[in-house]
Amino acid sequence: MSALTEQVAALVARQRAQQTDADRQALAAAYRHQPEPFEAEFAQMACDHPEACACPPEMPSSIPGFLAALSGGDLPADAVREERCIKAPIGCGRPLIDDQGVTRVFWDADEAARYQAEWQITGLCPDCQDRINAHDEDGYEQ
């Protein structure tokens, strides 16, 4: 195997020695201009000066703004403060304790703590957490 490696190295060295500067520049330019699969779509998003780029006013410019746009103006913090699930289409919008005082029953305190921790982060009630967790990594039901 080492003989083959030496032959390949010698061939590469010969090819590099035969290249002129013009050849190297032409080859480098050709590589720079190879079309990418989504080059046209990317060019529409590109900007010469990223620090000067701005989204259209109707687009949210922050993660909370993006979440609010997805959920119709609702945020996880709002849902937690109002003790309910985040509104549709992300969650169900129902209160954690219904009008009759009924809530979800958990197997043990650890399970309840896990659901509560997730609810405080995402605003999703236990039923919506279960609905989302019933899907695997690809987003398909298991």
Rank of each mutant, 00 (worst) to 15 (best):
P56E: 10
C55F: 14
I97L: 09
C55A: 13
G123I: 02
D110S: 14
P95T: 09
I121R: 14
G73C: 05
S62I: 01
Q116T: 13
I63E: 05
P89R: 01
I90R: 04
A54G: 05
L124N: 06
D98V: 00
L75D: 02
D108V: 06
Y115P: 01
R81C: 07
D48E: 14
D78M: 12
H49N: 14
L67M: 07
A46F: 01
I90S: 07
R114Y: 14
G101D: 01
W119F: 04
V80M: 08
G72H: 12
P37A: 09
Y115G: 00
P37N: 02
A112P: 10
V102F: 07
D48P: 09
A52Q: 11
Q44D: 14
R81I: 02
E82H: 08
E82V: 01
T103S: 15
Q116P: 04
I63F: 12
S61L: 01
L75E: 03
P126M: 03
A69F: 10
A68Q: 11
P89C: 05
E118N: 08
E58W: 11
G93Q: 04
C85Y: 08
P76W: 05
S62E: 00
V80F: 06
I86W: 02
R81Q: 10
C53T: 04
A68P: 04
L96F: 06
E111N: 01
E51I: 10
S61G: 07
P57R: 12
A113N: 11
F42Q: 15
F66S: 12
A68G: 10
E39T: 04
D74K: 06
F66M: 11
E36I: 08
Y115E: 03
V102A: 10
A88I: 05
A112G: 10
R104H: 12
G91V: 03
C128G: 03
D48H: 11
Y115L: 04
C128P: 06
D127T: 13
L67R: 04
P35Q: 06
R114K: 14
I121Q: 12
G72S: 07
A43G: 03
L75Q: 09
C47H: 14
P76F: 07
A88M: 09
V80Y: 13
P50D: 08
L67K: 02
V102W: 03
D98Y: 01
A113E: 13
A79V: 02
C128N: 01
A77H: 09
E39A: 09
P60A: 11
A52K: 11
S62D: 00
A117D: 15
I121K: 07
P76S: 06
C47D: 02
P37G: 02
L70S: 14
A117S: 15
S61M: 03
T103G: 15
G91N: 07
E83Q: 15
T103W: 09
A88R: 13
V105K: 09
C47R: 06
P64V: 00
Q116I: 03
W107L: 12
I97R: 08
C47L: 09
T103Y: 05
E111K: 01
R84K: 09
P57H: 06
E51S: 05
S71D: 12
K87I: 01
A46N: 05
G101R: 00
F38W: 08
H33L: 03
K87C: 02
P60C: 05
C53M: 14
A40W: 06
M45P: 04
I121M: 06
S61Q: 10
E39N: 00
F42S: 08
